[in-house]
Design a protein around this nucleic acid. Structure first.
Length: 829
DNA sequence: GTCGGCTTTGAG
DNA sequence: CATCGCTCAAAGCCGAC
C-alpha cells in the first residue's frame, strides 16, 4: 500500500465509493465565501508568495516557482479537507490537455481527492504518468507520443469503481495507431524484456552524452563533405577559445522547472538515495556537493532548513539548449568550431589576437548565448594553445571568462592543480604524489622531463611537460590540423552495466542478439563493417553482495574481456552474435553472476570498399625482405595506404580466386555464400585452428616428434580415461558421451566424477592444454547442438557442468596453462 | 624491437 | 519506490616471436 491518505468526510464534495445517490457538489460550491475568494486569488496569478514579495527582480521564473508550490499546497489542503480516504490515483500524475468533459476543474478535484497528483504545466514531462484529453490534434499526438493518453471517462469511471481501471480501455488513439503501440511510459521492463535496451538508454545520461558527442562529431565531418575544410597553417600563431556551459544539466533543468540557479541548491538525478548526481549548480557546490555524488550523501551535506532541489532529466531540453549554443558559435565566424561535447566547444581563430579583441569576443558570446538560452551562462577560457584555453576556462568558471597572454604568469600556474591538466585524473595524481609535493602546476613546472616520464609514462610525461609550459602535444593538435581524421569514428560499442540480472545462458544469448542488432544497425547507418569484435563482461566480485547498494547496480565487479577476429569485415548480426556468444562461453561467467555486458566493434572499415580487390602485400613476403629494404618499403606502403596483410588461411578463408567468384554472384546468393564461408571459418577456429596453425608454422616434423607424448613414442607417462590412453579416442568417447546424454538427463554423476578426475590428472601432469582442448570441444559440440536440444534437461545440465565445473578448473590453472602451451601438439578432430 | 590482446585511464 | 554505472580513444603492460 502506498502512503496516500485523506480523511473521509461527510461533507466531501465527491461521492464516496458506491454512494451514487449522494448528489454531487462541485468543489467550488463547497467553499465558504472566504475560501472561494482565496482559491480564485490563488489561481489567477495573484501576488508572489509571502517572503518574496518585497524582494526586487521578481522574475517569470519566480512566478512559476511560486505558482507550483502554491498549487501543491492547495492540493494538499483540499485533500485534507475533502479527501475521502480513497487512493484510487495513488502514484498517478495527470495532465489534462485541451477541452474535456467533465472539465479540467472537475477532473482536478477527482484526481486530488482520490490520492493522485494533478499537473498544471507540462514543462517537465516526466512527472506525468497519464495525459487526459478528449481529442488531440496531430501535432500534439506527435509531441506526446509514448505517453499514456486516455479519455476523461477513465478518471470518472475509476472513481466510480473505486479502483484504477486499465487506461488502455480508455485509450484515446485507436489501437491500430502507431502512437498507441509505443512503449508505455514507465512500464517496468527488466533486462529480459525486448525493450530493455531502448528504455534504459532513453533514461541514461551517459548514453545521451556519448551519443550526442558522436552525433556532433559526425555532423562536423559531414559539414565538410561538399566544401573544403580550411584548417589553420601549421606553425602560425592561433587563438583558441574554450567555451563551456556552467553546470549544464543543472542550469537547464532549473530553468525548465522554474527554479533559480542563483538561489536554489539544484541537483539533477533520477532517485533519492543511491542515485548519481549528474550535475549540481554552484549553490549546491557551496555545501560540498559534487557531480557524481549519490543523492543521499548530498542530502546529508545540506544544513538543516535548506532544501536540496532534486530535478529529473529533460534530455530534450538539454538538446535544444545545446543547439542554440552551437548556433551562436557557428554564426560567429570562427575558422573552426570543434565539438567537444553537448555543452562544450573549442573555437579556433587562425591568427593571434590582442587581449582586447579576445575580450570583446568572449563578452559577445557570453551575452548572445545568455539571450538565446533564456539566461544560461557559459564560461570561456582563451589562450594561444588548446591547453592554455582549457586551463583558463578552469579559472574563468563559473560565469566568467579569462584570457591568458603569452604562456601565462606565475600567478596563473600557481592557481591550477595537477588534475586540472587534461588527461590527468586521480590515478596520475597518485603517481605524482609519490615523487613529491606537486599540488600546483607551478611545482610541476620545476620537474625535469625525464622524471615526469618515468613517473607517469613516456607519452603522458611529455604531454604534461609541454602542457605546463602552455604548449600542446602533437596528439592534441591533430584536432586542429587534421580534424577530419581526428573526429572520424574508429570503433563502435554498446555497454550495459545496470539492470543486468539473468538466470539462464539462453537469456543472455537473446540479450547478446539484441545488442548486436542495435550495433549492426548503427554500423550500416554509417556505412561500415567490422573485422574484430570484443566482448567485455562484468562478473560480480566474489566478496560483493548479490544485490549491491544501488538498485539494480553492478556493484564491485571483475572485468573480463575477449576479442575475436572475424576473418572478413562484416555487418551481419548473425555472424557477429554467434562469435560473441562463443566468446561469452569462453569467459566462464555463470549467468547469475553477470552484472554487465559490453560489445565493441574494434576495427571498422568502409563497407563499400572491396577489401579483396584492394592491393595488399602478403606479410610473409614482406617479412622475408632484407631488413634495410624493409623500412623504406614500409614507409612507402604506409604513404600509399597499402596494407600488409596476412593472406594465410588463418586471416581469411576467402582467397582471391574465391573472392572474384563471389563478386560475380547475384547479391543475395553472394551474401549467403559469404555467410557460409564465414561460419565454417568460425567453427574451424573454435576447434583450435589457431593452435594448429601455430604448430604448422614451426618445423613440423621435428617439434611434433618431440612433443607428441600420446603416441607410442611418447616421452611422457600416459594418462588414462576409461582405460583409454589415446587422446583422440578419449575425445571421441567424451563427445559420444555428450551426444548420448543431451536429450535425456545429462551426464551421470559417477561418470562425471571419473571425468573430473581425468581432468585433474591432466592438470597435475602439466597437461592443461589437453584439458582445455577437450573442454573446448565439449563447448563447441554443445554450441552445434544448441538449436535442436537447448530445451532439453541434458543440454542445460551439460552447460552447467561446463560453466561451473570444468571452466573454473581451467581458470584456476590458467597460469600453468600459459607456461606449458609450448608443449602443444598437433591434433585433428 | 614489434605486434597483438587485454587492461587501465580519462573525458563529458 | 529504488534507478537507468555510456562510450569513445589513447596508452600501458605483458607475452609471443
Amino acid at each position: 500500500m502506498c502512503g496516500c491518505s485523506g480523511k473521509a468526510r461527510e461533507d466531501s464534495p465527491l461521492g464516496n465509493r458506491g454512494r451514487e445517490d449522494v448528489p454531487k457538489q462541485s468543489f467550488l460550491e463547497s467553499l465558504s465565501d472566504e475560501g472561494l475568494v482565496e482559491y480564485i486569488g490563488g489561481l489567477s496569478q495573484g501576488q508572489p508568495e509571502a517572503g518574496r514579495q518585497n524582494e526586487e527582480g521578481y522574475s517569470r521564473d519566480d512566478y512559476f516557482h511560486d505558482k507550483q508550490r502554491r498549487q501543491e499546497r492547495q492540493d494538499q489542503e483540499f485533500r485534507d479537507r475533502y479527501g475521502n480516504g480513497q487512493d484510487v490515483f495513488c502514484g498517478v500524475s495527470i495532465y489534462v490537455n485541451g477541452f474535456t468533459r467533465p472539465g479540467r476543474m472537475q477532473l482536478h478535484e477527482m484526481v486530488v481527492a482520490n490520492g493522485g497528483k494533478f499537473v498544471h504545466f507540462l514543462s517537465s514531462k516526466r512527472q506525468v504518468t497519464h495525459i487526459v484529453a478528449s481529442n488531440l490534434p496531430l501535432k500534439k499526438r506527435v509531441e506526446l507520443a509514448g505517453y499514456r493518453i486516455c479519455r476523461p471517462e477513465w478518471v470518472v469511471d475509476s472513481v466510480k469503481a473505486g479502483r484504477l481501471l486499465r487506461w488502455q480501455e480508455y485509450g484515446l488513439l485507436s489501437t491500430g495507431d502507431e502512437m498507441q503501440s509505443r512503449l508505455p511510459l514507465d512500464e517496468i521492463v527488466s533486462c529480459k524484456h525486448p525493450d530493455f535496451l531502448k528504455q534504459f538508454f532513453s533514461k541514461s545520461r551517459l548514453h545521451h552524452l556519448s551519443n550526442w558527442k558522436a552525433d556532433l562529431r559526425a555532423e562536423f565531418c559531414g559539414r565538410f563533405l561538399d566544401r573544403p575544410l580550411e584548417v589553420p597553417v601549421k606553425g602560425e600563431e592561433i587563438s583558441v577559445l574554450h567555451v563551456d556551459f556552467d553546470c549544464f544539466f543543472a542550469s537547464v533543468a532549473a530553468l525548465v522547472n522554474g527554479y533559480d540557479v542563483c538561489r536554489d541548491a539544484v541537483v539533477v538525478c533520477h532517485g533519492t538515495k543511491n542515485s548519481d548526481i549528474a550535475s549540481c549548480n554552484y549553490v549546491a557546490r557551496q555545501y560540498g556537493i559534487r557531480n557524481g555524488m549519490w543523492v543521499g550523501a548530498a542530502q546529508r551535506q545540506m544544513p538543516a532548513g535548506v532544501e536540496l532541489i532534486r530535478l529529473g532529466y529533460d534530455f530534450e531540453a538539454f538538446e535544444n539548449m545545446s543547439k542554440r549554443f552551437y548556433e551562436v558559435l557557428h554564426e560567429w565566424g570562427f575558422q573552426l568550431v570543434l565539438p567537444v561535447s553537448i555543452d562544450e566547444a573549442v573555437c579556433i581563430v587562425g591568427r593571434g589576437m590582442s587581449e582586447y579583441e579576445s575580450g570583446e569576443i568572449c563578452e559577445g558570446i557570453r551575452r548572445k548565448v545568455g539571450e538565446m538560452t533564456n539566461g544560461c551562462s557559459v564560461s570561456i577560457g582563451c589562450g594561444e594553445s588548446l591547453v592554455l584555453a582549457r586551463l583558463a576556462l578552469k579559472i574563468a568558471k563559473p560565469d566568467g571568462y579569462k584570457i591568458i597572454v603569452g604562456c601565462g604568469d606565475e600567478k596563473f600556474w600557481s592557481m591550477l592543480k595537477v588534475d586540472d591538466l587534461p588527461g590527468v585524473g586521480k590515478s596520475i595524481v597518485l603517481k605524482l604524489n609519490e615523487i613529491g609535493d606537486n599540488r600546483s602546476l607551478l611545482q610541476v613546472r620545476q620537474l625535469p622531463l625525464e622524471l615526469l616520464q618515468r613517473c607517469v609514462g613516456e607519452k603522458m610525461g611529455t604531454k604534461m611537460y609541454l602542457a605546463v609550459r602552455g604548449k600542446d602535444d602533437e596528439e592534441s593538435l591533430k584536432m586542429v590540423y587534421e580534424p577530419r581524421e581526428f573526429f572520424q569514428r574508429k570503433s563502435l560499442s554498446v555497454d550495459i552495466n545496470w539492470g543486468i540480472r539473468f538466470d539462464k545462458i539462453q537469456e543472455i544469448d537473446q540479450f547478446i542478439d539484441r545488442c548486436t542488432e542495435y550495433l549492426t544497425e548503427k554500423l550500416k547507418e554509417i556505412g561500415k563493417k567490422t573485422s574484430q569484435v570484443t566482448l567485455k563482461v562484468m562478473k560480480r566480485s566474489e566478496d560483493e553482495s548479490i544485490e549491491p547498494p544501488k538498485y539494480l547496480g553492478m556493484g564491485r565487479c571483475d572485468p573480463l574481456s575477449r576479442s575475436a577476429r572475424l576473418g572478413v569485415p562484416t555487418d551481419e548480426g548473425g555472424i557477429i552474435s554467434t562469435e560473441i556468444k562463443s566468446s561469452f562461453r569462453t569467459l566462464g561467467c555463470p549467468p547469475r553472476e553477470l552484472r554487465g555486458i559490453a560489445i565493441q566493434f574494434n576495427k571498422l572499415g568502409d563497407s563499400n570498399s572491396k577489401q579483396s580487390k584492394l592491393p595488399f602485400v602478403d606479410v610473409k613476403v614482406y617479412q622475408n625482405l632484407p631488413n634495410d629494404v624493409k623500412g623504406e618499403i614500409g614507409d612507402e606502403l604506409k604513404k600509399r595506404r597499402i596494407s600488409i596483410k596476412n593472406s594465410s588461411a588463418r586471416a581469411s578463408r576467402i582467397n582471391s580466386y574465391q573472392a572474384q567468384f563471389i563478386q560475380e554472384l547475384p547479391t543475395q546468393i553472394r551474401h549467403e555464400v559469404q555467410n557460409e564461408i564465414l561460419i565454417n571459418d568460425k567453427v574451424r577456429r573454435t576447434k583450435f585452428d589457431e593452435m594448429k596453425e601455430q604448430i604448422a608454422k614451426r618445423d613440423f616434423e621435428k617439434t611434433n616428434e618431440k612433443s607428441h607424448f600420446l603416441g607410442s613414442n611418447s616421452i611422457l607417462i600416459p594418462i588414462k580415461f576409461q582405460n583409454q590412453t589415446n587422446f583422440k579416442k578419449i575425445v571421441g568417447l567424451v563427445l559420444n558421451w555428450v551426444d548420448g546424454t543431451l536429450r535425456s538427463d545429462g551426464p551421470h554423476e559417477r561418470d562425471l566424477r571419473l571425468f573430473e578426475k581425468y581432468l585433474q590428472r591432466l592438470s597435475d601432469a602439466n597437461r592443461l592444454p589437453l584439458a582445455l582442448r577437450i573442454s573446448k570441444l565439449i563447448s563447441t559440440r554443445l554450441e552445434l547442438r544448441a538449436e535442436s536440444f537447448s530445451h532439453c534437461n541434458g543440454f542445460q545440465e551439460w552447460e552447467r557442468v561446463l560453466l561451473q565445473l570444468i571452466l573454473p578448473k581451467l581458470n584456476k590453472n590458467k597460469h600453468t596453462f600459459q607456461t606449458v602451451r609450448k608443449l602443444d601438439i598437433d591434433f585433428d578432430t
